[in-house]
Design a binder for these strands. Structure first.
Length: 489
RNA sequence: GCCUCUCUAGCUCAAUUGGCAGAGCAGUUGACUCUUAAUCAAUUGGUUCCGGGUUCGAGUCCCGGGGGGGGCACCA
């Protein structure tokens, strides 16, 4: 490229590139400058004391976010991971050459600045710089400083820009990390062991979802990306790891929505000699502990002003009772499928007539009951057709020993008394699979035949839990890089 | 896959009924040694997502395509 690009003053990239070349021509390498900060921005600000005469010298580094040039002095702000710090650069203190260079910096450049702390007459703790170095030149401009970045596509595709200019977004993702740490701490303290099981599986079991199908060239066969963690964690129960959990990515080849991303994070926990009742206590204590650790409160305030109280004991309700309440029909469960379809339509729900009888009821549950479960509610005694991996309720073979924890109108965590009878389990799988017998995980059944201790097991959708605790309305706001179509061009 | 909304300068947004594509920020040049979205003066910057069509004239209307948002469907 020729020098002519230099006077192309409307092309922001060209202007910055020219500045970079100019620096190199003057013997500076803006990407190799050595600089070690002594303090973060927040530390430096906290370090300053008004009552001491002795100036405190610091070295801070960060991205240049604000620059106000006033003739022979400049106020600028650097942002690092801890926040912003102002620096003050005077020509008579830093020298003619360096001052000239400083004035040519661009917003977005990453700098190091060294000097002593003072308080400006407007009250802001500031570094009076005696030295400034560019440690990384930015060739692209940042989004607008006042409005930030609002274009959702750019927020998702160029998350780094969102993180730089939208502080609440940054805070949300850091909170996500703290939530996951708090969960690990909680489980580790109770004797659970964290494990890692295969993501590439020969049979994608543990849930009903369409899997992604990658291929292993060396083995010459296709695998599936896992859709659940369940069947491998239960093998570990057989293997004697009595308290086990995994936090990992699941992949489901299905539609995307405000609540669904093709890859999402699940926590699954299994505890031998426990059952779904034990899991109730566990999730209840876990959510409350995590809330207190991370948020310092168990009360969540929704944007619309509705409060969700996660403290105290949680409501427990039977599936059947919730359905009867929602339909206002005491005889719902003895109606024919056709009658149910008609009644559903009257309730304003469009139900696919090809669904099985129990699926029609489940549709009513998902559309009429679940959205109304704002405060934490354990839904229990689900119909047995809904899950082939759970034990039947003693004395009522039509329901299973499970709960679904619903909060804020969303299912957050299902839990079961896990089925450990290999013969019953095989029958359930076969009935479920129908024609698709290749979907049965025979290795898992073999493991069960060696004896799995009775156990409680639970799955927690981490993304949804984070949504709940951060008030995010879309799963894309709690996943750093949500799935998008490949960028065209 | 279907329905619906949306796409204008690097970013945030205007543009009346179909009638000269504009502002703020950022950039460039200049002034200014305590600024707080600094200020002041001047100034550059456009494939209006892409391709067709209607029209004297299209950012605006019509058709097709693409990206994104929301909804539906799919989803034990």
């Amino acid at each position: 490229m020729s020098e002519s690009s230099t006077d192309n003053t409307h092309d922001l990239y060209a202007v910055r590139l020219a500045k970079l070349r100019e620096m190199r021509a003057e013997g500076m390498d803006p990407f190799r400058a050595a600089f070690t900060p002594s303090h973060t921005a927040a530390e430096a600000v906290n370090l300053f004391r008004d009552d001491t005469e002795e100036p405190v010298r610091v070295a801070v580094a960060g991205r240049l976010m604000v620059m106000r040039v006033m003739g022979k002095a400049v106020f600028a702000k650097l942002m690092d991971g801890s926040g912003l710090i102002q620096i003050y650069v005077r020509r008579d203190e830093i020298g003619e050459e360096e001052y000239k260079h400083f004035k040519k910096l661009d917003i977005g450049d990453i700098l190091g600045a060294e000097g002593s702390l003072f308080r400006t007459k407007t009250g802001e703790v500031t570094v009076r710089a005696v030295r400034c170095v560019t440690v990384a030149k930015a060739l692209r401009p940042l989004p607008e400083k006042w409005h930030g970045l609002t274009d959702s596509e750019q927020i998702y595709r160029q998350r780094y820009l969102d993180l730089i200019v939208n502080r609440d977004s940054r805070a949300r993702f850091l909170t996500r990390g703290r939530i996951i740490s708090a969960i690990r701490r909680f489980l580790d303290e109770r004797g659970f062991s964290e494990v890692e099981t295969p993501v590439l599986q020969p049979v994608a079991g543990g849930a009903a979802a369409r899997p992604f199908v990658p291929r292993n060239n060396a083995l010459g066969c296709e695998f599936y990306l896992r859709i659940a963690l369940e069947l491998y964690l239960k093998r570990l129960l057989v293997g004697g790891i009595d308290r086990v959990y995994e936090i990992g990515r699941n992949f489901r080849n299905e539609g995307l929505s405000r609540r669904h991303n093709p890859e999402f994070t699940m926590l699954e926990v299994y505890q031998a000699y426990s059952d779904f009742r034990g899991m109730m206590t566990l999730i209840h204590d876990m959510v409350q502990t995590v809330c207190r650790d991370v948020l310092g409160t168990t009360r969540i305030q929704r944007a619309d002003g509705v409060d969700i109280e996660l403290g105290g004991t949680w409501r427990e309700a039977r599936y059947k009772d919730l359905i009867l309440e929602a339909t206002g029909d005491a005889d719902w469960f003895s109606r024919s499928k056709e009658e149910k379809l008609r009644a559903a339509r009257e309730l304003g729900i469009e139900v696919n007539p090809e669904l099985e009888d129990f699926e029609v009821t489940q549709d009513v549950f998902e559309k009429k009951v679940e959205p109304g479960l704002i405060q934490p509610t354990f839904v229990t005694h689900l119909p047995k057709e809904l899950c082939p991996l759970a034990k039947l309720t003693e004395g009522d073979p039509s329901t299973i020993d499970v709960f679904e924890l619903c909060i804020n109108g969303q299912e957050i965590a299902p839990a079961y008394s896990e089925q450990n009878d290999p013969l019953v389990q095989r029958e359930m799988f076969e009935a479920q699979a129908g024609e698709e017998v290749q979907k049965i995980d025979h290795d898992f059944l073999l493991a069960l035949e060696h004896g799995m201790p009775p156990a409680g097991g639970m799955g927690v959708g981490i993304d949804r839990l984070v949504m709940l605790l951060t008030g995010a309305e879309s799963i894309r706001d709690v996943i750093l890089f949500p799935q998008m179509k490949p960028n065209p061009g």
